[in-house]
Design a protein around this nucleic acid. Structure first.
Lengths: 224, 224
DNA sequence: CATAATTGCTACCCTAGAGTATAAACAAAG
DNA sequence: CTTTGTTTATACTCTAGGGTAGCAATTATG
């Protein structure tokens, strides 16, 4: 750690090392890119055939590389699965947090939350579906971390419902249980939506908004 | 077919063959029982570890038998999966049909439908979860048959929503799309409910009823 | 009690696929 | 133009598990 920081300081003073540092930064970016590409193709196969049924040979073939190539960027198959699951839930959680950071009433915020999260889920269906389907294939430790992220999602959503309940905008008797139904409704999109299917992404997102609004709407309230 | 019916007729007239027939009937029942037990344990493992990750050796061990025992009752692993998935969707479909056969208004029927289907899903969580998760592991032909059953479910549910829309009991702009959200909400129970967890089966069922009622409730309607 | 039929088990085959040791190809440095 | 380090491929190993051939044990029948 210390040694590395020192080397960096020196690099800022001298010329050659600076160049070296720039080169190694580029290399890091390329490495990151390769990892991303591997993840992308792996998630594609995991989504279509399931984790266990997918061979790393087939993923390698799709990328026009060989299996040892993958193993030089990922420790093993399980690490790939973990990163895919992590991406799936983290994207949803980030979308939720960003939506919550928009100022507004609870109803307005909820609408934005559902819209953004639904969109993210549709755009990243592979990752979200794998995360929902393959939890049992994760190492216990990895599964725990994923569950923590999901729990954070549900908790933040519950807090929003709680807020709306206080202001009288929502009629929910039990915010944290309702949050699970709402997050289930959103998750369901990943399991069910089919690109180029009967209904467009926009229709599905709009439907999701309507459904969630109805689920929390006080009896006798007009529509938003 | 004809030959068999004839043989049965003769059996009713003679004594020895009658006994034989009774004996073979008992044997059939025993065979059916063994098949059921195998299916039960297999579904348990498929539910916990997933289809691919489950070995038939482990299923056999759980039953205190050996792998060839299983193979003398099922053609292969895929047939087990198919029967489990079939059970999962068929139970839900039957529950739906029975609920629909109860006379009443659309609202009353919907309530009964959600209650019964939710209960069946909770009671048969293993089968339903495997059916939802492992479609990709089915042979194409088997997958088609399962999808047909699911489609029948969604169609019957959509018809009920349509009926309620006509009578003005429900506010749904698109019954067949709403049916998918409702059936998704019900499916979500299987993926999420945990026996002995934070919430009881009864709470979950009651919640499901409430959520569905709100999803279809006209704006400004009082609660049922 | 002997013989036939059924039922289950022992002991195996064989393939597929995760993971790796090692060599080649290539790039960078001097 | 050599040398050194890095990146990727070739060519394996090894195990796990689906599936089966053939034998043993059990049960029914004459």
């Amino acid at each position: 750690m210390h040694t590395l920081a020192l080397a960096t300081d020196i690099a800022d003073l001298m010329d050659k090392p600076k160049k070296k540092r720039a080169a190694s930064q580029l290399k890091d970016e390329i490495t990151a890119y390769k990892r991303r590409r591997i993840l992308e193709e792996a998630s594609h196969f995991f989504f279509l055939n399931g984790y266990e049924a997918t061979t790393l040979d087939s993923v390698a073939e799709q990328l026009n590389v060989t299996k040892p190539f993958i193993y030089s960027y990922y420790k093993n198959k399980g690490e790939l699965l973990y990163e895919i699951c992590q991406t799936g839930i983290q994207l949803s959680l980030t979308a939720l947090e960003e939506a919550l950071s928009v100022e507004g009433t609870a109803s307005e915020q909820l609408k934005i939350v559902v819209e953004r999260v639904a969109r993210i889920i549709i755009e990243n269906q592979r990752y979200v579906t794998v995360y929902l389907r393959e939890e049992k294939s994760l190492l216990p430790e990895d599964a725990r971390r994923i569950r923590e992220l999901r729990h954070a999602f549900d908790t933040k959503l519950a807090a929003l419902l709680e807020k709306g309940k206080r202001t009288g905008e929502f009629d929910v008797q039990h915010p944290s249980r309702t949050a699970i139904w709402v997050s289930g409704l959103l998750s369901w999109i990943a399991l069910w939506y089919h690109e180029g299917g009967r209904w467009s992404a926009t229709e599905v997102v709009m439907d999701a908004i309507t459904m969630v609004q109805k689920m929390v709407q006080p009896a006798g309230a007009p529509h938003a």
